[in-house]
């Protein structure tokens, strides 16, 4: 990947973006155990595959989600978090 599609600004060179890590659902802090919380904080799904990731387009200040295969580095789609259906 050398180009990335920002849902607001279109296709831009990768150098304009910052990687924000995998999008992960937070466990309910009130009900989860300490162990579950520690796992959420520290552990990662490190195996290759299609992942939902946070990406940030710097010049416009836009966060969005990219669905990317971490093996082939191909992005299948991008959207603003929570607006997945609208795409």
């Amino acid at each position: 990947m050398k180009l990335l599609q920002c849902p607001i600004n279109g296709i831009r060179p990768l150098s304009e973006f910052t990687y924000g890590g995998e999008y992960r659902d937070m466990p309910d802090p009130d009900t989860c155990t300490d162990k579950e919380w520690a796992a959420y904080v520290h552990y990662r799904n490190g195996a290759p595959g299609l992942k939902k990731e946070w990406w940030y387009h710097g010049p416009s200040g836009t966060w969005f989600i990219a669905e990317r295969d971490t093996m082939t580095d191909k992005v299948s789609r991008t959207y603003i978090a929570g607006q997945e259906e609208k795409q």
Binding site: T18, G20, Y56, G61, W63, A81, G82
Partner: peptide, 20 residues
């Protein structure tokens, strides 16, 4: 910090506007 604010505004779906 600004970037993290922006991310969390989106994530938490809050009615907040940020200006750096």
């Amino acid at each position: 910090v600004y970037r993290e604010m922006q991310r969390n505004v989106q994530l938490w779906k809050m009615q907040v506007t940020l200006v750096n």
